[in-house]
């Protein structure tokens, strides 16, 4: 994807100007910036909903505002912040609607479509609620349904406006894992995020959307080093120091696992290049091992050795296999994210 001299806005009023960026396949790009700064406007222009005021967005060398919606629908899918209220539509039907570009006449779905939708449901952990009517789901479940819908559309480009909204911390982290996995498959992900720490952790590059309409491209490292955040959000000195302390704590922890090779941290994935990577029996394995959010923490609390491939080989998993103990784990995860409360005993 290539964005050239783009100016975006509503009703001929320019909100953002002179945006230039070339995005490689599989890149993860996050838009960060203050509320009302124009993140959604930029995303809407990229996905072709808004006509650019100036400049062009190219997707696979084609001008987005010129190609037909039909063609675009096989290359780009969206999650937006608009709340939808479909009547009497099950979660599965909502997910399946992402397969409409591939469906036959009268919107009939093939087995391939159904399988893709079922896979997306499993990925977003919706299988249990797939027959529930969308209107009866919680906000977080709705959000996950819409994300699953966008994923099963099998796009080259996934454009999401605040995909983490309504999600609790666990689903948020899992979503990040899903995004990483998609990007490894070659899907380019462009999204706006409010959680700076997530944006800094996951993104290859960041688009900083300022209130005055200026858009700059930076790597997460640059953002941290140059102190751009203060200017971007117009933070006062004291506020910025607080934010910075959090980032530094989170950033330092991040460095350690990044040194080793990456692995599937979330999925029970027998195709994982590291499988089998541990000596636990299958039950505890399918229950938690690959889901373990503490997997990439060196001090997860359990005993383990490192395999030669660089994966953890857990001996006695410390991750509590009991739902009642989840709060403790979440506390630990928070510690990992925000760099506070580093209680070593779980």
């Amino acid at each position: 994807m290539k964005i050239e001299n783009l100016s975006a806005g509503y009703d001929r009023k320019i909100i953002l100007h002179d945006i230039n960026i070339t995005i490689k396949p599989g890149e993860i790009i996050s838009l960060i910036g203050p509320n009302g700064g124009g993140k959604s406007t930029l995303l809407k222009t990229i996905e072709g909903e808004l006509e650019p005021i100036g400049g062009t967005v190219f997707i696979n060398k084609k001008d987005v505002s010129r190609i037909s919606p039909k063609e675009l629908s096989k290359e780009l899918s969206i999650v937006n912040t608009q709340r939808v209220k479909p009547e009497l539509m099950t979660a599965m039907e909502v997910v399946l609607s992402g397969r409409l570009p591939y469906s036959k006449g009268l919107g009939r779905f093939s087995d391939i479509d159904r399988r893709a939708a079922a896979d997306a449901c499993e990925l977003m952990q919706l299988t249990a609620i797939s027959d529930t009517f969308f209107e009866n789901l919680s906000d977080g479940q709705k959000q996950r349904t819409l994300i699953a819908r966008a994923i099963c559309q099998e796009p080259d480009f996934l454009v999401m406006d605040e995909p983490t909204s309504y999600l609790d911390i666990r689903y948020r982290l899992e979503l990040m894992d899903v995004i990483k996995r998609l990007s490894r498959k070659g899907v380019t992900v462009i999204m706006s995020l409010h959680e700076l720490e997530l944006a800094l952790e996951i993104s290859d590059r960041l688009l900083l959307v300022r209130n005055d309409g200026e858009v700059t491209v930076k790597t997460p490292r640059q953002v941290l080093d140059e102190g751009t955040i203060a200017g971007l959000y117009e933070l006062s000195g004291g506020m910025y120091d607080r934010v910075k302390r959090q980032f530094e704590a989170a950033g330092q922890k991040e460095e350690i696992p990044k040194a080793g090779p990456k692995h599937s941290t979330f999925f029970l994935n027998k195709e994982c290049e590291y499988y089998p990577c541990h000596e636990l029996n299958e039950e505890s394995f399918s229950c938690l091992f690959c889901y373990c959010p503490l997997y990439d923490m060196p001090d997860c609390g359990g005993d383990y050795t490192m395999t030669e491939k660089g994966a953890k080989n857990c001996r006695n998993c410390s991750f509590v296999h009991d739902r009642a103990n989840y709060p403790k784990v979440i506390k630990r995860l928070k510690g990992k994210l925000y760099g506070c409360g580093t209680d070593r005993r779980l």
Partner: peptide, 25 residues
């Protein structure tokens, strides 16, 4: 009407999503 069925199906989720699955709004 039956030619429109697919688009009507997509429109249940509102215009933006209908567009994103290829409906010429």
């Amino acid at each position: 009407c039956f030619f429109l069925v697919k688009s009507l199906d997509a429109l249940r989720l509102g215009e933006a999503y209908a567009r994103s699955v290829g409906v010429n709004i």
